[in-house]
Every structure is written in C-alpha cells, then in structure tokens.
C-alpha cells in the first residue's frame, strides 16, 4: 500500500466524472459529475500534502471547495433560469449558439 493508490483512485474517479459529463444530459447531473471531478482533484491535493509534509495542499483543497461552492450556486442559478424559460434541464436543448 502506497500513496499512489490514492492517486490512481483519484484519477479513476476523475475519469468517471468526465465520462459522466459527456454522457449525461440532465444539467444537474452534469454538475454533479463536475463536482465529482473536483473531489477527485481534492483527494489528489490532500494526498500530495501528506506526501510532502506540508499543509499547503490542504489549503488549496479548501479553496477548491469554496470555489466549487460558488460555482454550484451560480451554475444552479443558471440552470434555474434556463429551466424557467425553456421548461427543460437538458443541456442538449440549450443549443442555440451554433452555426
């Protein structure tokens, strides 16, 4: 057992999140996938903090959480307003910006 287990585990979580972003159409689920990717990164940060023996990684992870919170707030607000006008939370329906 070494720390690279955590890192590989985080990479797998990150990939699952990324694939989720690609295959899910519900905007809220897509957001959750993004959150999963952020969490995977946080795990990596914390693992490296432990590896190097400094707290800086944890602080960065804290900032990531804060930014994620802000992002969720704004993103969900956007989803709400889109839903209000289009009666749909599917991101495929918001495709006006095209050729």
């Amino acid at each position: 057992m070494s720390l690279s287990y955590y890192l590989v585990f985080a990479a797998i979580l990150f990939t699952i999140g990324a694939v989720g972003v690609l295959v899910r159409r519900n905007a809220i689920v897509v957001f959750m996938c993004v959150e999963l990717m952020l969490n995977a990164v946080n795990l990596t940060l914390i693992t490296f903090a432990r590896s190097t023996g400094t707290v800086d990684g944890q602080i960065i992870a804290l900032f990531v959480m804060v930014v994620a919170a802000a992002e969720v707030v704004v993103g969900l607000a956007i989803i709400m307003s889109i839903y209000r006008t289009r009666r749909s939370a599917s991101i495929d329906d918001a495709n006006l910006l095209k050729y």
Partner: peptide, 20 residues
Amino acid sequence: SSRLGRAQTGFVRTYALGML
C-alpha cells in the same frame, strides 16, 4: 468556414468530448 462551422453543433457535450 461554413463547412467547418458545422462543427459548431451547439451541443456542449460534443465540445466536451473534444476537450477530453
């Protein structure tokens, strides 16, 4: 450019696929 513009499908997921 109008042919290339076809790549702009408006589907965010297609773009994300490209990014991945």
